[in-house]
Design a protein around this nucleic acid. Structure first.
Lengths: 336, 336
DNA sequence: CGCGTTTACGTCGTTCGTAACGATA
DNA sequence: TATCGTTACGAACGACGTAAACGCG
């Protein structure tokens, strides 16, 4: 048995049991892959795949289990390489992050700027997508980190590190009648206006809908978009009342938009940064986590390094201690 | 990186950083091992070992971590092979068991007889030793199963499956004055006689001593031996009162020895069968477990197969439901 | 000088890519 | 006939073992 055979095996599986495609992905010849698969099957004395004529038809039950193990092995091989890189190639490497628009546009820029300053030779890749798309990237091992809000059920193979919490904010054009209220705004006030907010697939969105339902109200959603910039554009055009994450309402917007604090109206959301349970992170990756979630103490980071289960991570952080993030003013306010 | 390089690396570590010894163990030439180590270090770009002149002096901190990972990899490779054997070499293989004298002499014979009948082509190896010696065998990966009583702290790398419980029994020559008592025997009765029992290193032994201490008594230990046969021999010679595991007092002994039930006098012991957490057991190995601990239901066995932590195993079995084993009469009595 | 490691080198087996062939839809 | 996998073969590479050199105690 050789590592290459296992690598080829996984490549075949990950390319839909198409040996030709796997060979291309591996930058090698197709007969080579074919032969190594055959050799592996011969050595193990078992069929890993069922055959449809000459083509591969499916994976045998035993094959499934071999593949599982092979994945562990290749992951550990990666971990060894990663260890080695940490010791002798300090300062070089790459970091791929999958995240949503709000993070990429409003939260990450200054964090990434700081990271680049500290690690100028780490190449950074930002992959933007919906929670579901990010989950796919995780599956395909395309990213080192996923950053998102809620939707933890999509990311069971990751360790999720809660990083900060945020409220939604209501944005309206300056002088809008909602700003004339002499009391705190309520959900009742909102149902009279067309709302402009995130499309439902955006995680945490369903909690907004539920907030209305809990009071027996039906929101009038006039327009949905995937990112806050589009929402703000439409709010500026007077198309409705915007509801966005507080991070998205930055200071520049306050020239022509008015922000109404919606604290308490909707449940608070928690944004996390996650990485594969079985991956060994390089030093600069942990440094990135600490940049992203600076409330984590040095001691907590040490414990985090050793954590292998979500329970272990959760026990490190109490929700109440997470910082609350805003788009203007102090970027991070202390815990309530 | 190649699997062979990792195998060589581990062999070097397991042979006290002596490359020559490692090469012999691997049935290959010493320069070959040396070269592969060098290649591995070059590929990783790091020193795995510190050098004392030309000899290996110690393991670098980074090396330790690489070795950890390498062990996982080689274990998974074994697991794949094991899987393959299960599918295509059904009925062949080997089973090595490390256990104590009492198990080997009184409990295992009939279990092994049944196992041999079912799997005539599995070669069986019984390694007898103290708990400590068995723990060493586990470390050196010499055995598939460890069977022992108590001493669970020695076997933290194993999953321990509680299998049955047993009491100690008091054995005396026929007509001994302790048999004349018209009431249940107590610890006070025993301190007047020299006791013949297991040496202290035998696990669970300390609990015997503690039982006396709890009542403020000091037992008069006249003679200790490592196995019950020796103890019985000395009891027959009138050298003292024997205290042995109930399994060891078999029917044949009742001709010239009298057994006094000591139920309640000493804490009950639990015997377990254990296997490495990270090992993938072959089918016949699980069958052996079920032979050894027949109280485990089919459903529990299925869950056991998937268990990876001791907590998961413990949650499967409540102590109270374990059978109580005796040396004569019904071999296994139902739970109390 | 003995022990253990490294270097040097010749042999042998394996892998790889190209090219041709076979099977399937 | 287009697609995909297998077989065949020569070239290149890598692993292995023997022999010799080196360093340390």
């Amino acid at each position: 048995m050789k590592l290459q055979q296992l690598k080829y095996l996984l490549a075949i599986v990950d390319n839909g049991l198409n040996i030709t495609a796997a060979a291309e992905r591996l930058y090698t010849s197709q007969p080579g892959v074919s032969k190594q698969l055959k050799l592996l099957e011969e050595e193990l004395g078992m069929q890993l795949f069922t055959r449809k004529g000459k083509s591969l038809g499916g994976i045998t039950p035993a094959g499934e289990r071999v593949i599982e193990r092979a994945r562990v092995i290749m992951q550990e091989v990666e971990n060894i390489r990663s260890l080695a890189s940490d010791y002798y190639e300090e300062g070089t490497g790459s970091l791929s992050i999958g995240t949503t628009h709000t993070q990429a546009r409003y939260v990450l820029p200054e964090i990434i700027a700081e990271f680049r300053k500290r690690f100028p030779n780490i190449s950074l890749n930002l992959h933007q997508g919906t929670s579901e798309q990010i989950a796919d990237m995780v599956k395909a091992n395309k990213i080192d980190f996923a950053i998102a809000t809620g939707a933890s059920e999509l990311f069971s193979s990751l360790l999720l590190v809660p990083s900060y919490r945020w409220d939604r904010q209501i944005i309206v054009p300056k002088g809008h009648e909602l700003t004339q209220l002499d009391r705190k705004i309520t959900l009742h006030d909102l149902v009279d206006y067309p709302l402009v907010t995130y499309v439902f697939s955006f995680s945490g969105q369903s909690s907004l809908k539920r907030a209305f339902a809990d009071e027996g109200l039906e929101p009038n959603v006039g327009f949905t978009a995937r990112d806050a910039d589009v929402i703000k554009t439409y709010v500026r055009m007077g198309l409705g009342v915007g509801i966005v994450a507080s991070m998205a309402a930055d200071c520049a917007d306050r020239k022509d938009l008015q922000i109404i604090d919606a604290e308490g109206l909707f449940p608070r959301s928690t944004t996390w940064i996650g990485y594969r349970k079985d991956a060994l992170l390089r030093k600069y990756m942990f440094d990135f986590i600490q940049l992203f979630a600076p409330h984590i103490s040095g001691r907590q980071m040490d414990l985090l390094r050793r954590a292998t289960s979500q329970d272990a991570v959760d026990s490190l952080f109490a929700e109440a201690e997470l910082p609350l993030r805003d788009g203007c003013g102090d970027k991070i306010t202390a815990a309530a």
